[in-house]
Design a protein around this nucleic acid. Structure first.
Ligand SMILES: [Mn+2]
Ligand SMILES: [Mn+2]
Ligand SMILES: [Zn+2]
Ligand SMILES: [Zn+2]
Lengths: 128, 128
DNA sequence: TATATTAATGCGATTATATCGCATTAATCG
DNA sequence: CGATTAATGCGATATAATCGCATTAATATA
């Protein structure tokens, strides 16, 4: 937990985590909502996802379609930094996946990189 | 020109190009609009920018704020592919710049990368 | 130069994503 | 059980971007 606010365990949070942990892909709030049987308010979904990101449970990718996608963090527990990796958006099956491909860069002196948001766009191996 | 549709030369297009060619940064449609003296409709700005992207005159970056930014293409004339490079969004001065830093990746076999959208987020050298 | 063609524009409406305020509900703890 | 307050539902709101359509004007042609 990066945030010290007390969190409560709720069915909504459990359901969201359940959906994302059983997915190999990053998912949009709407796609997550659709995967949950019971009706959950849109605003609640967003708030749950944002809190999980704050807490380092999930990470967020903004794709080139301007939308947010969420996925489980792998190395986020432990005090390790979350692994910065590329994402892949397949224009055919319209999915976004976390690639096991770290983002490497050698940036000019003076810049301070705090975060990255990197998406490769094309056709995934399942659709090729 | 990647597109064979006949384009007409208009004051709006000239103004947009003038603004972007005198900027080292990628700019949002709204920022571009503000830099132009005469009033131009929002929809027109978007259409002009989209056409320029289609024609390979400009390229588009979607930042992690979900917004679109536009910048001149360097290697887009000629029949060369446009250079795929990282961008940098400074959270302090709120600008987005094209970095002279190519995006390199070795992706698993089967994937076909058609485009990239890569943004590094942090504090730029002018703000550090 | 005058006229025809149609790309480009202005304007309003529309779509879509995401957030916010506030009253209510319910998780947690003593 | 009762108190505290995090979490939720609902409606309103903010913002980005696009679309339909009538009008304007850039360009080509006579
Ligand atoms: Mn990821
Ligand atoms: Mn660029
Ligand atoms: Zn695919
Ligand atoms: Zn800066």
């Amino acid at each position: 937990m990066l945030n010290d606010m007390k969190r409560r365990n709720t069915p909504t949070k459990q359901a969201v985590l359940s959906v994302l942990s059983s997915s190999t892909k990053a998912m949009s709030p709407d796609a997550i909502k659709k995967k949950i049987d019971v009706s959950i308010d849109r605003a609640t979904i967003y708030r749950v996802l944002n809190r999980f990101c704050d807490d380092g449970v999930l990470h967020r990718v903004v794709a080139d379609d301007g939308k947010q996608y969420f996925a489980m963090c792998q190395k986020c527990d432990e005090n390790e930094k979350p692994l910065q990796h590329f994402h892949f958006r397949c224009t055919h099956c319209e999915t976004i996946e976390c690639l096991p491909l770290p983002v490497n860069y050698t940036i000019a002196k003076g810049y301070e990189v705090k975060n990255v948001n990197c998406v490769l766009i094309g056709v995934c191996k399942d659709c090729a």
